[in-house]
């Protein structure tokens, strides 16, 4: 299952990231890496991007990236 399929309010655990090297590094530097627990906080009015809470702060990114992140409950 990918992060893009989750609903607002859900708390999930990151399994893996499948994106190009630079993007993957940036996600990890910001604290989103395999094993991290995140909460989907909200969705922008036009349904994209989404915003998640991770390690106590909020970060937003697009659905396109969320589709490349697999998660488990």
């Amino acid at each position: 299952m990918t992060l893009a399929e989750c609903k607002v309010g859900e708390k999930v655990k990151i399994e893996s990231l499948h994106m190009n090297h630079n993007q993957q590094r940036r996600f990890m530097e910001m604290g989103i890496l395999p094993g991290t627990e995140i909460e989907i906080v909200r969705m922008a009015p036009l349904k994209d991007p989404i915003s998640v809470r991770v390690r106590g702060f909020q970060i937003s990114f697009r659905k396109k990236e969320a589709e490349q992140i697999t998660i488990s409950h």
């Binding site: 190009n20 993007q23 996600f27 909020q58 937003s60 990114f61």
Partner: peptide, 10 residues
């Protein structure tokens, strides 16, 4: 375009 949007919301 290899567009990305990653932004912290303070």
């Amino acid at each position: 375009s290899e567009s990305v949007f990653i932004m912290e919301l303070p």
